[in-house]
Nucleic acid binder design. Structure first.
Length: 434
DNA sequence: TTCTGCGCACTCT
DNA sequence: AGAGTGCGCAGAA
């Protein structure tokens, strides 16, 4: 309930700042929301992150600083072509979130709000993230594999877009989730920092809602995912898939753009710190005792084998079959599928499917226990703190993992490359098949 | 002190 | 050339 209210407030604020030619950064947004509605900065940060995840708001790195955009209003300028292709991906999920249209973000306040704005969000968002980091491999790889499928999509979309008839319309679904990462949350500026400051550990509880949203499912569309990676991962990204505003930084200062993200200590992270100390200990103990050695082996192998492309399917096989990850408890997975340890090729594929599907059903606890069991108990706490469930996991970008969880770079890289990426890839590859 | 409006330079398509 | 963005400054509240 308050969620939509916040959405409105935040979008309104962003629009407002923009109209007055002020950079819509975290600090200003929080301040304005507080002034206008009396909302706590931490809460605003949390809600903002949710919107970012939903892609209702895009977080971009423009001219060296982080800015937030009303997804509905961005991108209409350039990416229309892109949209077309993206639209497809999005659209699939769109259906699911039709409900989302409520996102209509109340831009009303803003400018020439277009009627199509609601819909725009979807595509817009997808492409955005500029700030991201560039991480080469991630993006490159994903690009290779993922980019391919998309080509086919475009055409399809074009049709739909036609349907949109509207000038801009492309995708009808506002769903795409993660283009931007929530990571930078409160980091920017002093204000943000102070607002969401460590001491103020925002109520993470609020954050989790993001994952609950229906649209978070959209990743089910391979295309969408791919795009996310591209865009986000713009990281490395080939300018191909990025949005105008966002890519600027990446293209121009790939490295620099990353920096901000690194420093950033999103609101969540702030909370993380506190939580880590408290609950972390418990969790760590538990998880540690349960799994440490499992992953290395598997992970290492993955790394080598990983020629990205096959990573997806390979990983699947790897996880359950080759690697003795039995210990890793994948609740949903097991539940629906039974023991993953046996079975021939057919079974494997079946498992694959189920696993992917189940991924969407993973709860925060499932995700945490997964990483815990995978040998990252400490980091698992971060996932838990950030309330990353299966859906969120699918939406995570490399930078999210590297910087948004406030975990050390080393483990973060391993987690992303060996697990997150693999799970995502697997998931959407599978979706593709379907 | 804070908010708001806006000229103008930048950046990108 | 056209359009989005936001810095920096001045005026208003």
């Amino acid at each position: 309930m308050s969620e939509s209210k916040y959405r409105e407030w935040i979008l309104d604020t962003i629009d407002s700042l923009r109209s007055r030619k002020a950079r819509p950064d975290l600090e200003r947004i929080c301040r304005m929301v507080r002034r206008r509605h009396g909302s706590e900065p931490e809460r605003t940060c949390a809600e903002l992150e949710k919107l970012i995840v939903e892609q209702t708001v895009l977080k971009v790195n423009y001219k060296g600083s982080i800015s937030y955009r009303n997804a509905a209003k961005v991108q209409r300028r350039s990416r229309k072509k892109y949209d077309a292709s993206l639209a497809t991906a999005v659209r699939s999920s769109a259906a699911e979130d039709a409900s989302h249209s409520d996102l209509s973000n109340g831009d009303s306040a803003m400018g020439p709000a277009d009627p199509d704005e609601d819909e725009l969000e979807a595509d817009t968002s997808i492409a955005m993230d500029t700030d991201s980091n560039a991480d080469e491999e991630g993006a490159d790889e994903s690009r290779d594999e993922e980019a391919e499928p998309s080509p086919s999509l475009p055409q399809e979309d074009s049709a739909p877009s036609t349907a949109d008839s509207g000038p801009v319309r492309a995708a009808s679904a506002p769903c795409s989730p993660s283009v931007t990462r929530p990571d930078s949350g409160c980091r920017s500026g002093s204000a943000s920092g102070s607002d969401c400051g460590p001491g103020s550990s925002p109520d993470c509880g609020s954050l989790q809602k993001a994952g609950e949203r229906p649209n978070s499912l959209f990743p089910s569309s391979p295309g969408a995912l791919a795009h996310n990676e591209l865009a986000y991962g713009s990281t490395v990204g080939p300018a191909e898939s990025q949005l105008p505003g966002m890519q600027r930084d990446n293209n121009v200062h790939p490295v620099e753009s990353t920096k901000p993200a690194v420093h950033c200590v999103s609101p969540t992270p702030c909370a993380l710190n506190n939580i880590k100390k408290e609950d972390g200990a418990k969790l760590e103990d538990i998880s540690r005792s349960s799994s440490d050695q499992l992953v290395p082996d598997y992970a290492a192998r993955q790394d080598e084998t990983k020629s990205v492309c096959d990573a997806g399917s390979e990983s699947l096989r790897c996880l359950p079959d080759n690697c003795s990850l039995k210990k890793i408890s994948l609740p949903s997975f097991k539940a629906t599928e039974g023991s993953p340890l046996n079975g021939g090729k057919d079974e494997v594929s079946v498992k694959k499917e189920k696993m992917s599907q189940n991924l969407l059903q993973w709860t925060v606890a499932d995700v945490a226990s997964y990483f815990s069991a995978a040998g990252f108990p400490e980091q698992a706490v971060a996932f838990r703190t950030q309330e990353i469930d299966g859906k969120s996991l699918l939406l995570m970008q490399r930078s999210d993992v590297l910087t948004g969880l406030s975990i050390r770079l080393g483990p973060a890289l391993k987690i992303y490359e060996r697990h997150v990426k693999v799970l995502q890839r697997t998931h959407f590859l599978e979706c593709e098949d379907l």
